[in-house]
Amino acid sequence: MTLELTYLLMTALLAGSLWIPFIVGVTSEREDFTDFTTPPDHRKMRPWVQRAFRAHQNLLETLIPFGIALLVAHVAGISTSVTVWAAIVFFWVRVVHAAGMISGLAVFPIRPIIFTVSYLCTLAVVAAILLA
């Protein structure tokens, strides 16, 4: 397995695990565990629970285009230092984003910078594909 796919797999595991803080927050806030037909109102939850939900959603939104780009590169046989570093940076930036978002430490302008770096990683992989 290439290093790019290894980091893509780790990013998928991160995305698949980020529901845990949110669910912990939801279940620790919910007083009535008999009515599961009504979804919880995120606006009424503690700020860190709201941020956990947003961190999970944000990772899912960025992982889809990045993952598709990396998979296209893999199928096309493109593996360069650009694609390797993009995969490494994307993963670690998303870890920092999730930790910073849930803890509340990643405030403006840190959050948009982190998001932009992850987007630039996607663009770097796409550029490597198009220039190959």
Results as ranks from 00 to 15, higher is better:
L120N: 08
I68F: 06
L59Y: 08
G77F: 03
V95C: 08
I78F: 04
T27G: 05
E61R: 01
T6N: 11
E29R: 15
F90Q: 03
G67E: 05
I88G: 01
V75D: 15
L14S: 04
L59R: 12
P65W: 08
N58K: 06
D41Q: 11
N58T: 09
R94P: 04
V125T: 04
A106P: 13
S103V: 02
A106R: 13
T34W: 10
P112I: 12
R94V: 10
F91E: 00
G16T: 06
F66I: 00
C121S: 03
A98D: 05
V82A: 07
T11S: 13
H97C: 03
P40V: 13
Y7F: 10
V26P: 06
S28I: 02
V95R: 07
H74P: 06
L70A: 13
A87E: 07
L3H: 13
A12I: 09
L105Q: 06
V125P: 00
S17D: 05
I102R: 04
L120Y: 10
V89Y: 05
H97P: 08
C121L: 03
H74I: 07
I23A: 15
I78G: 05
L13V: 05
F90R: 01
A55E: 00
T116D: 14
T37H: 11
A69Q: 14
K44C: 14
T80N: 02
V72L: 11
T116C: 12
P112A: 11
A73E: 01
I114M: 15
T27M: 12
W19Q: 05
F108Y: 10
V49H: 00
V125K: 00
K44S: 07
T83S: 01
M101L: 14
G25P: 03
V75P: 15
I110G: 11
V95Y: 05
I114T: 10
T27Q: 09
G25R: 03
M101G: 15
